[in-house]
Design a binder for these strands. Structure first.
Length: 410
RNA sequence: GCGAACGUAGCUCAGUUGGUUAGAGCGCGGCCUUGUGGUGGCCGAUGUCGGGGGUUCGAAUCCCCUCGUUCGCCCCA
């Protein structure tokens, strides 16, 4: 019986796990620098946590969630995103009393989509969320954090910050109505896919890649005309600050996000080295969401990053090698060998033996793995209660014992 | 969910218009060499040709179904 991994899921090992661990380590580093605290939430939640905030008509809710009934008929969903669970956890545990409340987390998300490069059914996200502040500094800070992280992890890749403002939540709902009306009056100029979105999610027509739609999109009412002067000034200030930080920005008035809760600043870090799934990090402001989930009326801003997508752009990371290799020449010398093995481990060296009683093989092995030292345990060594230590880079060999071996190892 | 390409050894891939026992390189194991190095030489094992069904005297090769991967759409991280 051979059982394969479920479609869209992967096992992590070798170079991939090294990359994965590096991402997580760097995330923890940077979170410390920017003053964010770790918050880990369960893999599954009540389905209702996701349905309304993400949008009843969004694709994620409509066809991508892994939802099932528990034995007592509670409806459970494997989390498809991390922002709403984090808010839920912050509310559940009274973490919103000291503001701003800055949290981050990494973990698996689940969406039932067609797998593709950079798109998997179980995938890992990094999330940074800042609850409770309307200050533009929060927007700038969290985008700067994202940029810093990407620069650290993929210094040789080019990525661009796409940015837009959706304006205040009230303007946005007005704008959706105006857009629906406009598209309804011009149905014959729209592609089939876009027609389906007129009433459910007209914003998404704006970022359609279909050339059929491009003429009409150009003529469509502009969100910017509904946005207040204050909001536009704020947006300008954010862009100016980011440019001042040396971040490459691309202003994209058609950038909208797929989840319903966004307003004001929205952004995506994109790479052109990834193909179709090219967004490394996406996020924005979500004023009103915390209240929707039963908390106080607090603003918030945050982003999510795809760990697998970042890993696709990372160079391979060499495994840290053991620095000492054993060569045990006969099974009867094992008891003698284990003494030095144990001693070296206790002194923080890493020691390896490949279970082969053959000096030549041990040398070849150590060479191939670029191990610095070889300890030979043979008949003479056992008889005299010592060991032969060979420095593989210069070929010099000395007789040592447990009392003085540390003098010869650097 | 839609469209297309692909799937042969642990890895990268050959495999002619269907024809005996399915190949190469790398890697792996053994020996040359029973206590000293990266080479070198000789031998060896690789396998449900993704899976199932069909056509045929005969299928890795043709047809159908299915699973998976990749690319595009869609969606998004």
């Amino acid at each position: 019986m051979k059982i394969n991994p479920v479609r869209g899921t992967h096992d992590l090992f070798g170079d991939e796990i090294n990359k994965f661990n590096k991402v997580v380590a760097e995330v923890k580093n940077i979170s410390q620098q920017f003053g964010f605290n770790e918050l880990i939430t369960p893999i599954f939640e009540s389905s209702e946590l996701f349905k309304k905030p993400l949008g009843e008509q969004s694709d994620v809710v409509l066809k991508e969630m892994y939802t099932f009934n528990d034995r007592n008929e509670d409806e459970i969903t494997l989390r498809p995103e991390y922002t709403t669970p984090m808010i839920r956890a912050a509310i559940s545990n009274g973490l919103l009393n000291n503001l701003p409340a800055k949290f981050f987390g990494t973990g698996q998300m689940f969406r039932r989509e067609r797998p593709q490069k950079g798109r998997y059914r179980q995938f890992n996200q990094i999330n940074f969320e800042n609850f409770g502040s309307d200050d533009l500094f929060a927007d700038i800070e969290i985008i700067c954090l994202a940029n810093t992280l990407l620069k650290k992890l993929i210094p040789n890749s080019k990525f661009t910050l796409h940015i837009n403002t959706l304006g205040a939540r009230e303007n946005l709902s007005d704008y959706k109505k105006i857009l629906s009306k406009f598209f309804n009056n011009n149905q014959k100029f729209l592609s089939k896919d876009s027609l389906d979105k007129i009433n459910t999610n007209p914003l998404r027509i704006l970022d359609s890649k279909n050339p059929e739609d491009s003429v009409l999109i150009k003529k469509s009412p502009k969100l910017i005309d509904l946005t207040s002067k204050t909001d536009l000034n704020n947006y300008e200030e954010i862009k100016k600050s980011l440019t001042g930080l040396g971040i490459n920005i691309f202003e994209d008035p058609n950038l909208v996000r797929g989840l319903d809760y966004y307003c004001h600043t929205v952004f995506e870090f994109k790479s052109n080295e990834l193909g179709s799934q090219d967004t490394l990090i996406g996020g924005g402001r979500y004023n009103g969401l915390i209240q929707t989930l039963g908390g106080k009326n607090l603003p918030g801003v945050g982003w999510a990053g795809g760990i697998e997508r970042i890993m696709l752009l990372m160079k391979s990371i060499p495994k840290k090698q053991e620095n000492i290799h054993l060569a045990i020449l006969d099974p009867t010398f094992k008891l003698h060998a284990i003494k030095i093995y144990d001693f070296l481990i206790k002194n923080n060296f890493s020691v390896y033996w490949n279970y082969k009683y053959n000096l030549k093989k041990s040398l070849s092995f150590a060479n191939e793995k670029r191990i610095n030292y070889l300890i030979i345990v043979g008949e003479n060594e056992k008889a005299n209660n010592n060991f032969s230590l060979k420095n593989l880079s210069n070929g010099k060999q000395v007789i040592v014992n447990i009392d003085n071996i540390l003098d010869y190892l650097k």
